[in-house]
């Protein structure tokens, strides 16, 4: 009986991994559609973040990218439709915050933003969930045709 229970658990774990993988693929194609017909996919980022513990700042996912002058980029972030948390993108150059999907003044969260780059170099892109909630998302970096 114990062996049987163990096998059932094993089957559950393997299958849930498969379902997660399939869901992630679907989310990626959905997010590519969201990014628009004028956008050409360059890179994607998978984001899986835990919930912030008490008095902790929201956990973030950090990625480094190189952006090129005279190029327009679109940053898009997507979650599952039933997600309870809102993902936020922040773009930093080497020293400071230069763009975000979260407008502090209005409290509005955007799914994407266009960034018109005029300085070639390394940038850092951060993803986190509003109010430090747990969540999974996909971020897309695209090139925007002029």
């Amino acid at each position: 009986m114990k062996k049987f229970k163990f096998l059932i658990w094993l089957i559950f774990i393997v299958n849930s991994g498969f379902l997660y993988s399939q869901g992630s693929e679907e989310l990626l194609s959905q997010c590519i559609s969201t990014s628009g017909k004028d956008a050409t996919y360059l890179k994607d980022f998978t984001i899986n973040l835990p919930e912030a513990t008490n008095q902790q700042r929201p956990p973030v996912s950090k990625n480094s990218i190189i952006l090129r002058k005279n190029t327009s980029y679109r940053f898009t972030v997507c979650t599952e439709d039933n997600s309870k948390s809102e993902p936020i993108i922040q773009l930093y150059d080497t020293q400071r915050l230069i763009a975000s999907t979260f407008d502090k003044k209005t409290g509005k969260c955007y799914k994407s933003f266009n960034f018109h780059c005029s300085k070639t170099g390394p940038y850092n892109i951060f993803f986190y969930f509003k109010d430090g909630k747990k969540g999974s998302a996909i971020g897309i970096l695209s090139y925007v045709k002029k």
């Binding site: 498969f18 993988s21 399939q22 992630s24 693929e25 990626l28 980022f45 998978t46 984001i47 899986n48 973040l49 835990p50 902790q56 700042r57 929201p58 956990p59 973030v60 996912s61 950090k62 951060f126 986190y128």
Partner: peptide
Amino acid sequence: STNNKRRAEKSFIL
């Protein structure tokens, strides 16, 4: 599945 090679994300404080 092509998706199983995704990079593990690192978490740290913002």
